[in-house]
Design a protein around this nucleic acid. Structure first.
Lengths: 184, 184
DNA sequence: TTAAAAATGTTGTTTATCCAACACATATAG
DNA sequence: CTATATGTGTTGGATAAACAACATTTTTAA
């Protein structure tokens, strides 16, 4: 385990910036938030912002990934398998995350957000698959992870759009047999 | 007005340290608080502590002065005179401050705290006296400020010790005529 | 359309913070 | 007594953060 301890100043400042951004996101839309706003709120120098992030879009990506990771509680799946329980848990994490986001007014960036979610899901699924199928063809597992990520994400989109009278749990559960036992 | 803006890092770090110290003071006695405790709580490096403060006693002094200053609301007296109203206000500020302290367990440092309070009082009184008696003998005003500081402080000690059935306002008010109109 | 104002990114220099290491003092226990 | 541990205060070198200045681009208003 390579643990190159990161300088506490970095962790502190990144946290200041991210917290400031989330605070501002609750008040105004993404398109109205400037770098100056963020550095004012975070009480750091504007140049320091650019030391940590490419630009405001880079910040958006990293904040979303981080919040999503917390929602996914990645460590919890670190040592478990893909099964009915974990699939339901992940699916509800996604729907919760999206509900939380919808209050935060990131209109116009749905596609970015969607990509981030799928990327995170892909990572999580791939890890679980590799653990579950040691020694098997990595490429096949990779493609499977991609399809699972898109599938789960798509299901969450459709659930939000159409069927909110069914709980997320019930919604995804109806498809699980086909996932777990195969289409045949 | 010379306003040499201080580096925001300094303000931040000092606040972290002071907040950490006050937080710890609520939990354990002063004698059981180590520098390491403080820097852990403040999430800063131990060496950084010594960049800002001589030692833990220096920190104690500065925290108390600052808290006291806030209690005294120094600016409020900045442009006013010594009269019945301000004397009562200052006296109650002191008694409030000491009540707040007594919950914070600084046992064994009463004398240090007393000195800090008197020093602060002296500064406040001297400023008010100078404004009130422009052009008069500074030394006389200085000594008067010293006596007022000791007197007001002593009165607060005696009030705490003996007469808590009288309000601070009533207690000090009984002596104000002799202060304002003189002993004769 | 144009001029002023505000936001973005970048750069070089200075300063505050981090870190590891040190000598020294003060317990605490075997 | 002695060894082990814990706290104090200091140092030198490395690095993150502050700051001011600049050229560009984008917004805003007139």
């Amino acid at each position: 385990m390579s643990e190159a301890k990161t300088d506490p100043r970095i962790l502190r400042t990144r946290k200041f910036i991210m917290d400031a951004f989330m605070e501002l996101s609750a008040k105004k839309e993404f398109k109205d938030i400037t770098v100056k706003d963020i550095t004012n709120e975070a009480m750091i120098n504007r140049a320091t912002f650019y030391y940590h992030f490419e630009d405001i879009y880079d910040l958006l990506e990293k904040v979303l990934s981080e919040v999503l990771l917390i929602n996914l509680d990645c460590n919890a799946y670190e040592n478990s398998e893909i099964n009915e329980e974990t699939l339901i848990s992940i699916f509800t994490a996604i729907t919760n995350f999206q509900n939380a986001l919808s209050n935060r007014c990131h209109r116009g960036y749905e596609e970015t957000i969607a990509r981030i979610i799928r990327e995170q899901l892909e990572v999580v699924f791939y890890r679980m698959l590799v653990r579950q199928h040691e020694g098997e063809d990595k490429e096949g597992l990779q493609v499977t992870a991609v399809m699972l990520a898109w599938g789960i994400y798509g299901a969450s989109v459709e659930w939000r759009r159409n069927v909110k009278d069914v709980t997320p749990e019930a919604y995804i559960q109806s498809a699980i047999p086909y996932l777990m036992k195969g289409l045949s």
